[in-house]
Amino acid sequence: MNKSNGEGYPNKPVQLIIAFTAGGSSDVQARIVEKYWKKYFNDQPLAFEYKPGAGGQVGFTEIARAVPDGYTIGGVNVPHILLQSLSPQATFCKDDFVHIAQVVNDPQLIVVNPNNPIRTLDDFIAEAKKKEGRMTVGIVGTFTAHHMALLKLQDILGVKFNAVPFQGSADQNVALLGGHIDAIIGNLNDIMRYTEQFRMLAIASENRHQWLPDVPTFQELGYSFTSDIRRGFSVPANTDPAIVQRLREGFQQICNDPEYLNEMEKIGQPAAYLSGEDFTKYCDRYYEEAKQLIDKYELNKKN
């Protein structure tokens, strides 16, 4: 097809694989991108295809194995794809994807129930030390961004937690609301709904977030700790570089469209554009870090 160059691409509808269910955060975000897609890509429609399952692995595998002609792109989540490629049941590796752009950076926070006397991160650390590893911290699944964040946090803060894994952020939030667990590691996007019910102790991003200007970063409090979930778009490896270039340019335009940014704020997802090259660099860095962490805690050990 368009082997030679990116000229004229796209000349037919482009398929977009979403690795989560319709109506999920990834889908909602991609729907916003869809609104502006036609404007920057020759007026061709974007056809959604949902391949949910296995924490995104089914869909990501589908993206990695798609025909690399540029007419199948996929929404990817980091660190999901990186951690899944590191697991013993991996069905793709991290180099199976060529990243087009990062669109969302959803930082993680430490959150407690306000009925709890804990007010600051220092209180939290003191309490955790007092409880000698019995402080319950809710995370989402294992071998996930939340799990990695918890393990990293244990090292950085020098305490031990009792991890209580949940199936999703909704369950995790309910358990915290009901006071069944002491704290959670949650994402900004999921927490925004409960800012009045929860007490946010610290945010794991480099700078304070504009939506939560009163919540200090870990950096400010003296701990070098960042953790987040990022959403981006990718094509399978071996896609024509010219097409990749065309896609990267188009996404850059979409992501800087003021109307697009407005809508992203409305849906409560922290938009943060990164070019494909920078996103790839970030992924490589995270991959190395996670590999060390997994080896250290022997997460891949059988039995």
Partner: peptide
């Protein structure tokens, strides 16, 4: 919870 595959006989589809 742990996301470890069981009884999938190596199939990606069965993982979900």
């Amino acid at each position: 919870i742990t996301g470890i595959a069981r009884f999938t006989f190596g199939s990606v589809e069965l993982m979900s």
